[in-house]
Amino acid sequence: MRWIIKLDNGLAWLSTFCGWVACAAMILMAGNVFYDVFTRYVLNDVSIGMQEMEWHLYSVVFLLGIPYALRTDGHVRVDVLYARWSDKTKAWINLIGAIIFIIPFSYLIWKYGYAFAVESFSMGEGSADPGGLPHRWIIKSVIPISAVFTGIAGLNMATQALRVMSGEKTYEAKHGAEGLA
């Protein structure tokens, strides 16, 4: 049991790390869009590179946000029955769901996303538009990276479920808008 707790905490740390990167990207993105509007309207200047940076950052926000939201149980559930179930039943649902849904799904996205990014890297792909960003593979590789971390967060969901089953931990009212002010 001790090692499961350790593993659980370690995996949770990885998801939190993803969240940290996504949060930073979020603030940068808001600033980026504002800056682009400002330079275009006030200074009459446009940079397609900066415009492309917007969707690069926005992609990081949601792709790395997904594992983070998994750890904080921020993904919406249909709770018609779920809310009434005991922690133990919930743990079973989460354990099985993580193993048959999240981990295989993440695996496939990782597998094909990796090939997708490698192809882009091998061609030296960049933007086709004037002043656009080079190195398209960087943003494409966020897809498999996100999949790896989502898979890890899935594993984490399983370890958490095991802790709950053993009675060492509870789910509290930990779903939906947990963490929102």
Partner: peptide
């Protein structure tokens, strides 16, 4: 406050986009 707001935003955004994916 900004950092916390960003955290909330990331969580909710991820929830929306995970559904889209």
């Amino acid at each position: 406050m900004i950092w916390d707001a960003s955290k909330d935003t990331v969580k909710v955004t991820a929830m929306v986009f995970a559904i889209l994916i």
